[in-house]
């Protein structure tokens, strides 16, 4: 191979790599690693849907929304300047590991499994899909107060949320099963 040909091939290779990189740049957001656990955003329920399901604050208390992302919404329950608790709803599609702790759960709230995490946090798994969590801050809340707070969420509304994408397909058969379980009711 002649010297010029080698140089030419080398330059061609470098040039094509550079052009390839330039062409791919706008598609960076489609490359893996952009979303949590590489789950496509379309399969995760948007946090906006969760906002209206948060409990109404008591008089003298305030609910301040602090974060809203795909599959997540969080608010602070405040009394005056003091933060009493963090309230959050999340879609466990991006965090499958979060589901496993509910398997060992013995207690239930409105039929959904309930788990205590440490001395200050309580979690509830609704419809095997949405995690509702109350984390007490500062002086804290006792277990009953946390359970009452979780019960004040619109849990039925949360269970009825229509998840988009693949999980919806997984839910449909169970709906179709219902008439078979209770024939001609």
């Amino acid at each position: 191979m002649s010297r010029t040909l080698r140089w030419g091939l080398g330059l061609l290779l470098i040039g094509s790599l550079a052009i390839g990189a330039f062409v791919l740049l706008p598609f960076r957001s489609w490359l893996p690693g952009g979303t949590v656990a590489d789950v496509p955003n379309s399969q995760v329920v948007n946090g906006t849907a969760f906002n209206r399901l948060f409990p109404e604050p008591d008089t003298g208390e305030q609910l301040v929304f602090t974060q809203e992302k795909r599959g997540f919404s969080e608010a602070r329950l405040k009394r005056g300047d003091r933060v009493k608790a963090l309230l959050a709803i999340s879609d466990v599609t991006t965090a499958p590991a979060a589901r496993s702790k509910f398997k060992a759960s013995k207690s239930q709230l409105q039929g959904w499994p309930l788990v205590e995490q440490g001395a200050q946090a309580t979690a509830l798994l609704v419809a095997d899909r949405f995690q509702v969590k109350v984390i007490a801050q500062g002086e804290g809340l006792d277990v009953e107060q946390r359970h009452a707070l979780i019960g004040a969420f619109d849990l039925q509304g949360l269970a009825a949320l229509q998840p988009g994408g693949a999980p919806r397909a997984a839910l449909e058969p169970s709906h179709r099963d219902l008439p078979i379980l209770e024939p001609a009711a």
């Binding site: 906002n51 301040v64 929304f65 809203e68 969080e74 602070r76």
Partner: peptide, 20 residues
């Protein structure tokens, strides 16, 4: 970037900003 656009109304958003 960190918090998204929290809340459903402009009031909610302003409250979130103040909180932050």
């Amino acid at each position: 970037q960190v918090n998204g656009l929290p809340g459903d109304s402009f009031g909610d958003f302003a409250a979130a900003l103040n909180e932050y």
